[in-house]
Measured scan of single mutants.
Amino acid sequence: ALNRGDKVRIKRTESYWYGDVGTVASVEKSGILYPVIVRFDRVNYNGFSGSASGVNTNNFAENELELVQAAA
């Protein structure tokens, strides 16, 4: 299972961040479909780089994520 702070690569092909590595911000335990919230260094097309207006978190299912580096 994934944990907060883990570095993960995104495998959801239609995602803006496909192939990117993000950090797990939190994992919901309530049984929702996309329980893993991942935070990225770059914002998506809703904002400009360096601006706070873009979105830099997204929810994924565990099977859409590949663990790159476990949290220390």
Rank of each mutant, 00 (worst) to 15 (best):
G54K: 05
R9E: 03
E28W: 03
E14T: 11
R9N: 03
N63G: 07
V38F: 00
I10S: 01
A71I: 10
V24E: 01
G31N: 13
N46A: 03
G19N: 10
V21R: 00
F40M: 03
D20E: 08
G50S: 06
N63E: 11
A61Y: 10
G22A: 02
N59H: 09
R39T: 07
N63D: 15
Y34Q: 08
I37P: 00
S26D: 13
S53Y: 06
D6P: 01
V68W: 04
R9K: 11
E66S: 05
R12H: 07
L33W: 04
G22I: 03
V21K: 02
K11A: 11
T13S: 10
V36Y: 10
V43S: 06
N58C: 15
Q69N: 11
G54W: 05
V43Q: 05
W17N: 01
T13M: 14
T23I: 13
V27K: 03
G19K: 05
L65V: 14
T13H: 09
N58W: 15
E14W: 08
V68Q: 03
K29Q: 13
F60D: 02
S26Y: 12
L2D: 01
T23G: 00
G54R: 04
T23V: 11
P35N: 09
S53L: 12
K11T: 11
V36I: 13
S30N: 12
G47Q: 08
Y18E: 03
N58Q: 15
S15Q: 01
D6M: 05
K11C: 12
G50K: 03
F48E: 15
Q69P: 09
N59T: 07
V43K: 06
V43T: 10
F48Q: 14
W17T: 00
N56C: 15
L65R: 05
D41L: 08
P35R: 05
S49D: 15
I37G: 04
E14V: 14
R42Q: 12
F48K: 07
I10L: 15
K11V: 08
L2M: 08
R9D: 02
V8L: 01
A71Q: 10
A1C: 14
V21D: 02
G31E: 13
Y45W: 08
K29S: 14
V21L: 06
V55T: 12
S53F: 08
S53M: 10
A70V: 12
D6E: 02
N44R: 07
A25R: 10
V27H: 12
V21G: 01
S49G: 14
A25I: 15
A70L: 10
R4L: 13
D6S: 03
S51R: 01
S51V: 09
E62S: 08
F48M: 15
D41Q: 12
Y16K: 03
R12G: 03
K11I: 13
V27P: 02
E64T: 02
